[in-house]
Amino acid sequence: MDEEYDVIVLGTGLTECILSGIMSVNGKKVLHMDRNPYYGGESSSITPLEELYKRFQLLEGPPESMGRGRDWNVDLIPKFLMANGQLVKMLLYTEVTRYLDFKVVEGSFVYKGGKIYKVPSTETEALASNLMGMFEKRRFRKFLVFVANFDENDPKTFEGVDPQTTSMRDVYRKFDLGQDVIDFTGHALALYRTDDYLDQPCLETVNRIKLYSESLARYGKSPYLYPLYGLGELPQGFARLSAIYGGTYMLNKPVDDIIMENGKVVGVKSEGEVARCKQLICDPSYIPDRVRKAGQVIRIICILSHPIKNTNDANSCQIIIPQNQVNRKSDIYVCMISYAHNVAAQGKYIAIASTTVETTDPEKEVEPALELLEPIDQKFVAISDLYEPIDDGCESQVFCSCSYDATTHFETTCNDIKDIYKRMAGTAFDFENMKRKQNDVFGEAEQ
């Protein structure tokens, strides 16, 4: 370990593993360490099931009705991949897709007046949907046509809207959309967690709705994908990429100290040895004095023996409960997957309800979601602090990732990755940087 590296990475969460992969592909010498004996950090999948019970201090362990412990891979952080989103792009560019198998999530649902409705995925579904009345549908269709044709580089498509100054509230007004449709559009399509976006320039919202539609167009059922064997497969896929390009991995490796000289990182000390480096990437748990708390998320993992009611017996789905429907500031989400994804025993389902904490009784906040899941065989409640770095790391060369937020997709995580890359490399992130180099010394032969 007593060696000189360009970059040392602490923690094998998804953000850290993707950055480690990119740095290795770009010719950097990388050492990647984790104090845990497993990959994934906060974003790991726990197996066998006995391990999950232990982690949540349920000492009696799983009953026999849960089947074989080894058949379970339970995500600690519930997220899906947008089919046309940035993480899929990263997987394709790096060819990490060859280590993973994905399934399309069967449906996306939205909560309205105590019931759940399928988010329409085709024009026919939209016309048949009970989510809105006849005239509302016509106006909504006009709005969707506007979004589909919108091109930020072609003012002819703006229809009198200025993407940089017109607020989204004004765009909704222009198409005369009612409150329910606005809730549905902002939260189930643009996937905002709160209503803060309404008074911001509309460009980002329009682009988010386009991303949803384009992702949906790829597979038809929903815009989301999920990897077989759980999300823990993602960091491992990128760790393989890093290793192929010469990255060194050490799990179960305690970090005793991060060594600084004149305010700059110069190395990491572990078990009496020092590895030197020019730059350091880590998750917040490794540098508690360089991060601040930015809120909390509650996630309740529920094991069920039945599909969720009114989802047409889907073996995977997402449910969004827009905040307006339950008098909150932030949406509540449910991600459900099952034995069909090799993450649970035969006939079992895993539904994870999550939201940003707003009160001193977080469990009560998630109740509307839990009511949709009854009866629940077993619950595991996790309340996590969200951390963000206190500075950009440019001076110390210590670059810290943000905690995983309450969103049900990876777009915010990818933004964090691109942002850290830019601060480390001094140049904007470009997907081309992730391409495997042809015929290089570490390149794998085609399968």
Rank of each mutant, 00 (worst) to 15 (best):
E3W: 05
E3P: 10
E4L: 04
Y5H: 01
G13R: 01
C17E: 01
C17F: 00
I18F: 07
I18R: 14
I18C: 12
I18G: 02
S24P: 02
S24F: 02
K29R: 09
L31T: 12
L31S: 05
L31P: 01
H32L: 01
M33R: 04
R35K: 12
R35P: 11
Y38G: 04
S43I: 06
S44R: 11
S44N: 06
I46T: 10
Y53S: 03
Y53C: 09
F56S: 12
L58N: 06
L59W: 01
L59F: 10
E60Q: 07
G61R: 12
E64D: 08
G69R: 09
R70G: 12
D71A: 04
D71Y: 04
W72C: 01
V74G: 03
L76P: 05
I77S: 08
P78S: 13
L81F: 02
N84G: 15
L87P: 02
L87M: 00
L87S: 02
Y93L: 01
R98C: 06
Y99P: 00
L100K: 15
G107V: 08
S108D: 02
F109Y: 04
V110G: 04
K112M: 01
K115D: 08
K118T: 03
K118D: 05
T122I: 11
E123A: 11
L127P: 06
N130Y: 10
N130R: 09
E136R: 03
K137E: 02
R141G: 05
F146Y: 08
D151H: 05
D154C: 14
P155T: 00
F158L: 11
G160T: 02
V161D: 03
D162A: 14
T165P: 03
M168H: 00
D170C: 14
V171L: 09
V171S: 14
R173V: 02
G178K: 03
Q179H: 07
F184T: 14
G186D: 04
G186A: 08
L189M: 08
T194W: 04
D196V: 03
D196N: 09
C202R: 02
L203I: 04
E204D: 03
V206S: 02
N207G: 15
N207K: 03
R208G: 05
S213G: 07
L216F: 05
Y219D: 06
K221G: 02
P223Q: 00
Y226C: 10
Y229Q: 15
G232T: 15
L234S: 01
S242V: 02
S242M: 07
S242E: 01
S242G: 11
A243G: 06
A243L: 07
Y245R: 15
V255I: 15
V255T: 14
M260W: 05
M260K: 10
E261L: 15
G263A: 07
V265I: 04
V266R: 03
G267N: 07
V268R: 00
E271T: 02
G272V: 04
G272I: 15
G272R: 07
E273Y: 14
A275P: 02
R276S: 00
Q279C: 12
L280R: 01
L280A: 09
I281V: 11
I281F: 04
C282W: 05
C282H: 14
Y286R: 14
I287A: 15
A294D: 00
G295F: 07
G295Y: 12
Q296K: 00
Q296P: 04
I300L: 03
I301V: 11
L304Y: 07
L304W: 05
A314G: 07
N315S: 08
C317W: 04
C317P: 01
Q323W: 14
Q323R: 10
N327F: 13
N327A: 14
R328G: 08
R328E: 13
K329G: 10
I332D: 00
C335Y: 06
S338P: 02
H341Y: 10
N342H: 06
N342R: 15
A344M: 14
Y349S: 04
S354H: 14
P362F: 10
E365A: 03
P368T: 00
A369D: 00
L370V: 07
L370C: 05
L372R: 07
E374F: 10
I376D: 14
K379N: 04
V381L: 07
A382S: 07
D392V: 12
F399D: 01
C400F: 08
D405E: 02
T408S: 07
H409S: 00
H409E: 06
F410Y: 04
T412Y: 01
T412A: 09
N415A: 15
K418D: 05
K418I: 10
I420G: 03
Y421F: 02
G426H: 15
F429S: 06
D430C: 11
N433P: 11
M434Y: 12
R436H: 07
N439D: 10
D440H: 13
F442H: 15
A445I: 08
Q447P: 10
